[in-house]
C-alpha cells in the first residue's frame, strides 16, 4: 500500500502516518496479521525521523490496532467486534465533529448522508 504524507501541513507527520495506516486497514489494503515495516526502514524510506514513525506505532498500539512484538515487529491485530471502552472513546472523538456539523446547520439526514458517503468511499476498491 502506498503511504503519502505532506510534511508542510499543520497535521503532524506521525498523525498522518497513523491515519493512513488505519485507513489502509479499513480499506483492506493491510490485513490483520500483516506486519508493518520496521521503524528504521519505514523512516528511511520516507526520509523522516525514526521518532516520528515510533510515535505513530505507539499511538496505534495504544489504540489497540497493532501489537508490537519483539523481533517480528508491528503486527495488525484482528478485531471481531468493538468493546465498550473503545466505543466510548470513538464516541467522544466523533462528538465534536458532529457538533461542529450541527453548528454549520447540517441536519440529521445531512450528517447520516455524510457518514454513508465516507463508508462508500472507504469500501471502494482501488
Amino acid at each position: 500500500m502506498m503511504i503519502q504524507i505532506e510534511p508542510d501541513t499543520d497535521i503532524p507527520i506521525y498523525t498522518q502516518l497513523t491515519n493512513q495506516i488505519i485507513e489502509g486497514i479499513a480499506r483492506g489494503h493491510i490485513k490483520p496479521g500483516d506486519s508493518l515495516p520496521s521503524v528504521r526502514s519505514f523512516a528511511a524510506d520516507l526520509g523522516v525521523n525514526m521518532h516520528t514513525v515510533n510515535k505513530s506505532y505507539h499511538e496505534l498500539e495504544k489504540k489497540g490496532i497493532i501489537q508490537i512484538v519483539p523481533k517480528s515487529g508491528a503486527v495488525i491485530i484482528k478485531h471481531e467486534g468493538i468493546d465498550d471502552v473503545t466505543y466510548q472513546k470513538l464516541k467522544e472523538d466523533v462528538k465534536p465533529h458532529i457538533a461542529e456539523a450541527m453548528v454549520f446547520g447540517m441536519t440529521e439526514e445531512d450528517i447520516q448522508q455524510l457518514v454513508k458517503s465516507i463508508i462508500v468511499e472507504l469500501k471502494e476498491k482501488n
Binding site: 500500500m1 503519502q4 505532506e6 515495516p37
Partner: peptide, 12 residues
Amino acid sequence: LKQVKVTDLSIR
C-alpha cells in the same frame, strides 16, 4: 504544487 513524500508499505 503540493509537496509530498511517498513510500510503499510492501517495498521491503
